[in-house]
Amino acid sequence: MTRYALYLGCTVPVRGMNYEMAARLVCRRLGIELVDVEGFSCCGFPARPLNWRAGLLMAARNLALAEAQGLDVLALCSACTETLAEADYHLREDAELRAWANGELAEIGRAYDGGVRVRHFARVLYEEVGVERLREEVTVSLEGFGFASHYGCHYLKPSYLYDGFDDPENPRSLDRLIEATGAHVVRYEDEAQCCGGGVLGFDEETALLVAKQKLDHVTAAGADALVLICPFCAIMYEANQRRIEGLHETEYKLPVLYYPQILGLAMGFSLEEMGIKLNRVKPRGLIRALRGR
């Protein structure tokens, strides 16, 4: 059995509980043991813009907690994945920086020796479980449904952190994962577009404009839902969807689903177990097709 430290970050446990519910159940069924590590805090992403070394130490502290338990990290949020992987990369490559960081961490009784691999949940599904195995687990095919995939930015970029497991300009992994459920992938304009989440706190108007572009393109392509793997992308496209509709006098009603939600439904889990109740824009077609399970 594969064991990972489950790294939830800030957003998932409060605003992405449906993602967490689905990920936990799917992992259990697939034989991936997720360990909840006491003491994990924010990854350091919001501290980096103010002080890069503060962000590095926050990430290193989390890595130290996982390392103390002899576990690699499985993260649900793409920005957390990137922040932790970046810190791990620098601490591993730069002995001087590592010595400095460990000198600081020693003051709070922590140490990091560079022994933790950081993986995004979707990458673990794609690389370690594999699309074939997922297909074998599907008992309720989602054939007939068309989903648009949103990879987001930090799942793939910067690519030097990710050993080239997928092509950042022309990614495939999430599409293959979606297809494993029996559904087909709907192509749309400008698929690599960022959600805009990185500037939401600073300039909401601009951030929502960036998010709007994808909602326009996915709606025009006629997808049943947008499928993604990052809680912040979901905040932009789902939690802010009504607001974007209001600001621009338009209507999308585009369901936004976390990948493990559709995978879990295809594996026979119920709508309730997959936390569909917490999706603000109801995926009505899916609910109609799967109700009663």
């Binding site: 939830l8 003491g39 805090s41 070394r53 130490l57 003051e107």
Partner: peptide, 20 residues
């Protein structure tokens, strides 16, 4: 929703902020 509790641990993060 059947999810385990999380205990906040702010002290060490606060220490890092002060230190930096």
């Amino acid at each position: 929703y059947g999810l385990p509790p999380i205990r906040e641990d702010a002290e060490e993060v606060g220490w890092i902020m002060d230190r930096m």
